[in-house]
Amino acid sequence: MNKRDPLEESPPGLTSRRSFLDILLGATLFAWLGSMIYPVIRFLIPPKQPDLNVSSLDAGMADAFKRNTAKILRFGRKPVILVRKKGGEFKALSATCTHLDCTVQYKDDTEQIWCACHNGLYDLEGRNISGPPPKPLTPFNVTVKENKIFVTRDESA
């Protein structure tokens, strides 16, 4: 029987013992690294906080809310801007600018919603009318019952 030197080059097309071991070693190393890195990456991702299941928000008394003003309310984790128009009707919109996440404000001189960060403008329907915002603000429903203002999620939006 002729014994072949295990370290000798194997004929082309055949995997030598050495290259097989290289692959095995490489794969083990890779798996080992993965098992080190995976827990770290999982650790970096913050655990999901249960969504504060807010469906309705008591926004105070209607007659105490001056016309042509607005306030920012906390709806779950997100801010909502509640505007009382000149005519007296209410409008609620998401207060998070669709551009880069700043909180918008009401401009009483032009009756528009303005984001100070990058000069984005919305009308009172939430439509992005000028500046960089790419999308309109999400509307919320406002109902007034017995002088109390309630803001609720707009299911149609």
Partner: peptide, 23 residues
């Protein structure tokens, strides 16, 4: 977190050229 971004808000000066571009 319950206030609007104030008027005249700006980043540090070395981010200003990028900030202005985005505006």
């Amino acid at each position: 977190p319950l206030t609007s971004a104030p008027a005249g808000i700006r980043p540090e000066w070395y981010f200003m050229f990028m900030f202005q571009t985005l505006k």
